[in-house]
Structure formats: structure tokens, C-alpha cells
Computed example of a mutant assay.
Amino acid sequence: MARYSVEQRGCLNTGDYRLFFKNDKGQYISPFHDIPIHADANKNVFNMVVEIPRWTNAKMEIATKDPLNPIKQDVKKGKLRYVANVFPHKGYIWNYGAIPQTWEDPGHKDESTGYCGDNDPIDVCEIGNKVCDRGEVIQIKVLGTLALIDEGETDWKIIAINIEDPEAAKYNDIDDVKRLKPGFLEATVDWFRKYKVPDGKPENQFAFNGEFKDKVFAIDVIKSTHGYWRALVMKKTDGGEINCTNTTLTDSPSYCSQASAEAIVNAIPVCGDANPIPTEVDKWFYC
């Protein structure tokens, strides 16, 4: 099984912070394009890049518009973005991240939701017991999906569990989550419905009246987004500002050498001391 490592650049809790990825040979890679979608295709085991550890607030994400797509903190209106604590939740209630080599095409209207994609890799909510590290690459078993409609875009949320979780064998479909973690899926809907309300935005909406779709449906969605990604990275689709620079896909027009990749990383300042997290991030909101 492939192993990955990360290299921090800049200072945590600043706009300069970047988390770059390396493969097991120490070579720089893109977590968006170079990490395979599958850890084991025969068993439908997928790779997941952890962007945000459970119970943290910093809105970290794969930088889809930056070369090599490091993880960085989202910025809105010139300020670093932290997700509010909407009672009774503290930060993110799952390990949150993305499946590599997927892309929700903003030019494709989803037949089941009636809305186009959100221009990002497909999101994952991992529900296991371990609090993962930012930048960790884990192998997941897909259980189902929720279709969030976020500002007029389809934003699929895959529900999954780390295959190394001690209880992973008990979870094989979305009904197992309902049975073994009572209230958890309802809390997930509640979280996504309200998390932008403290920012002055309306509650989010959902396709299918907020009902979760099962494993088979979710895997079909993932496979379709992999197809859109393939067209993107091969320049068969106009990706706009999406950066497809990669170091392993030699048939891609955006393939680059390790020397070029090293130059991209070295252009970012070396890792320094972290800035303190603003005290207001710990505030609780009652919606």
C-alpha cells in the first residue's frame, strides 16, 4: 500500500501556509491528481486525503488553483476562514477531506439533483473513531452519500469509514450507520444545513429532501466524478482556473518534472512558527 508524507511551508494559521505532498520515494506530488482514486479497486476501497481533522475549525482545502495543489486555508473577504461552532457541534464533526482524482464538473448538470457540480474534488465525511491528521491519506469504505445544494451547486458529501477502524467490518451501507450510530446522520444534515448561518447566509438545502443515498448510489457518483476529472486533466474539458500540474501522469499535458515541482515548493517560505488561532473561533452560535 502506497505511503505518503507531507511538507509544511509558511506559517500555520496564516495565508502563506501550504502543506505539500510527497510519495514514498520522497518526490513531490499533487494530492488532487497524483494519488490514485482507489486503494483497492476490486474491493471498492478508495483513498481519502484528510483536509480537516475532526473537531477543528480551520477551513483547510486542497488548493485546486495552485500548482501541485497543496492544502491551504480558505480565505473569504481577506480573512482566514474558520467554520463556526453551531450548537451543539464543535468544529467539523467528522474527519473531512476529499477523494483524489475526482472533480465535480461545474459544466455538467447532475440528472438526479438538477444542479451543476461545485468545481472541487468530491468531499468525504469519515465517521471512524480516530481523529486523523491534516494531510493524512487513509483508505476508506464508502457507505452512502448526501446531496447538499450549496449556493445553487451540487456538493456531494460521501459518508465513509476508515478501513483500519476497529469497527469498520460492522459498516457496509448507510443503514448500518443509522443502526449503529443513532442520531449521527441527523446531526450531519443539521451541521450542513446551518454551518453558514453565523456568516449571515441562509440555511443550505438538500436534494432528495435530505435523505441519504446508499453505497451503490454513492460509488456511482464517485465514478462519474472520476470521469470528469480524467477529462479535466487531459484537457478535454475546460477547467477554467483549475491547476492540473502533476508529476506522475506522463500522458497529461500538465505533467511536470521533479525539478519543476521542487521549484514550485521552494517558492513558498520555509515553515515558521504558527500564529495563534483567534479567540473568537471558540464562540458558540445558537441557530
Rank of each mutant, 00 (worst) to 15 (best):
D251G: 02
P253W: 06
R179I: 01
V197S: 04
Q205V: 10
K157S: 05
N172W: 07
I264D: 11
A261K: 00
T145H: 06
E262W: 01
Y228E: 06
D176C: 11
Q258L: 09
G183P: 01
D173A: 08
P198S: 13
P253F: 04
K178E: 14
A261S: 09
N246E: 03
Y255F: 13
E164Q: 12
K236Y: 09
A169H: 14
I158K: 00
C244P: 05
S257E: 10
I242N: 03
A160M: 00
V177W: 03
E164I: 12
G240H: 01
V177M: 05
V189Q: 09
D155Q: 02
I219T: 04
A231V: 03
V189A: 08
K170E: 15
P182S: 02
W156D: 09
Q258D: 02
D165R: 02
K215T: 14
E186A: 10
T154D: 15
K196V: 13
E186H: 04
L232V: 06
I163W: 03
R193P: 01
E153C: 14
T245K: 01
L232A: 13
T237D: 12
P202R: 06
D190F: 11
A160G: 11
A168W: 07
K213S: 11
I174R: 05
Y255P: 06
T225Y: 05
F217Q: 07
P202W: 08
N162G: 03
A218L: 06
G183Q: 09
N172Q: 14
V233H: 00
I149E: 05
V233Q: 00
I161Q: 00
A187F: 07
I264G: 14
T250G: 06
A263F: 11
I219V: 11
K213L: 12
P202I: 11
G239S: 10
N209D: 15
F184Q: 14
S252N: 11
G200T: 08
V216N: 05
R179M: 15
T225W: 05
I242C: 01
T248Q: 09
T247P: 04
Y195E: 10
P202S: 15
D175P: 02
A263C: 14
G227H: 01
V189R: 08
E203V: 13
G240P: 11
T245S: 10
D165Q: 01
N246A: 12
D220V: 12
G152M: 07
A259F: 10
A231N: 13
T225P: 08
D175R: 15
N209V: 02
E153R: 09
G210C: 10
K181R: 07
H226F: 06
D220C: 12
D155H: 11
D251Q: 11
L249F: 08
S224C: 04
K178L: 05
D150W: 04
V221S: 02
A263Y: 08
W229I: 04
W229S: 06
F184P: 02
T248E: 01
S260H: 10
K178N: 08
N209G: 04
T237W: 11
W156S: 08
L148C: 14
V216H: 12
A218N: 00
G200L: 07
E203R: 03
A259Q: 15
A187N: 15
D173K: 14
R193N: 14
E153K: 15
F212P: 00
K170T: 15
A267L: 12
D251W: 13
G227V: 05
